[in-house]
């Protein structure tokens, strides 16, 4: 049921939409159609992908590149790692960002504190690579440790740890960089939402004797929920196509491969496989789309 208020003429909406739709069509939709086409062709983009099948091996015909993208060990590892990133980093950055935004809202040096958390967001990924080199560096010979973490470990009498090449921990090392980079993004957007919560209502609740926990869940949370959902959706998409951090720190070695790094590694030498990975990446957003449509409907029904 569409509210009457929204009926504003037949052509008017398109006047508002047109500039954005044209740009998105030219720069994203049109190339995506090409991407789908290429994903059905071989590495040279001249013949059907089916021609790369060899006798006696499993073959998915024209979808042969998708067989690579869904069954190759390197890709399976990448899919697993992306799932790990999603599970840990999305809640991590959002909870952390929200927690900090709420705390910072109450101190007088708020804008300085927020600037510090925001700072990594402003650093290019080349800069971030260098910064974290000085944290994770390991000296395996006799020399002094110039990486901060290992210097602390050795100073406490421990042994240096290879943070980036030990498959048991390196994914977590990379995720820490991710949280550091993206925490500021979540914090900034959520902070803007918190500013929108009516301060009088909050005060009134506190006067009535509600503790901070109740104030958060009963007043703040419902107001900023739409923003939390927006940030969750955005973070999920960002993590699905996470690339820079992995590329700069390990280039996918030592079991840290992720989907987008695989896609980029193949982009020149095997356009077919690379584009098939891209299409899979797009397909992975379908659940997120469905979730958002549902919420869209519910929200409109409520107003």
């Amino acid at each position: 049921m569409i509210p009457r208020i929204m009926k504003q003429g037949r052509w008017a909406p398109w006047f508002y939409l047109l500039p954005a739709l044209i740009l998105m069509t030219v720069f994203i939709l049109y190339p995506t159609i090409g991407t789908i086409r290429l994903s059905l062709l071989d590495s040279t983009s001249r013949h059907s992908a089916a021609s790369t099948c060899s006798a006696g091996q499993p073959c998915w015909g024209v979808f042969e590149n998708y067989r690579y993208a869904l069954t190759n060990p390197a890709m399976l590892l990448a899919l697993r790692n992306n799932a790990l990133w999603l599970l840990l980093m999305v809640p991590g950055t959002i909870a952390g960002g929200l927690f900090f935004a709420i705390l910072a809202d109450r101190v007088r040096y708020e804008s300085a504190a927020k600037a510090i958390i925001f700072l990594p967001t402003a650093i290019s990924f080349i800069g971030a690579g260098i910064i974290w080199r000085f944290v994770y560096d390991v000296e395996s010979g006799g020399g002094p440790q110039i990486g901060l973490l290992n210097a602390i470990l050795v100073g406490l009498g421990g042994h240096p740890v290879t943070w980036l090449s030990n498959p048991a921990i390196n994914n977590f090392s990379l995720m820490l960089v991710g949280v550091w980079l993206w925490g500021g993004f979540c914090m900034t957007i959520l902070s803007a939402a918190i500013k929108g919560v009516n301060a009088e209502i909050l005060e009134a609740a506190r006067v009535d004797g509600a503790n901070e926990w109740q104030v958060f869940w009963n007043i703040m949370y419902p107001t900023i929920l739409p923003t939390i959902i927006v940030v969750t959706t955005t973070m999920a998409i960002i993590i699905l196509k996470i690339f820079d951090v992995v590329f700069v720190m390990t280039n996918g070695n030592f079991g840290t491969e992720v989907i987008a790094n695989r896609m980029f590694a193949l982009i020149v030498t095997n356009a077919g496989q690379s584009t098939a990975i891209a299409v899979i990446l797009i397909a992975l957003t379908i659940p997120i789309m469905i979730f958002n449509i549902r919420r869209f409907r519910k929200e409109e029904a409520a107003r």
Binding site: V138, E139, S140, G141, T162, L164, S165
Partner: peptide, 11 residues
């Protein structure tokens, strides 16, 4: 080699 396998891989 300096640092053994870890040295070779991480240096």
């Amino acid at each position: 080699t300096v640092g053994g396998a870890n040295g070779t891989v991480n240096t």
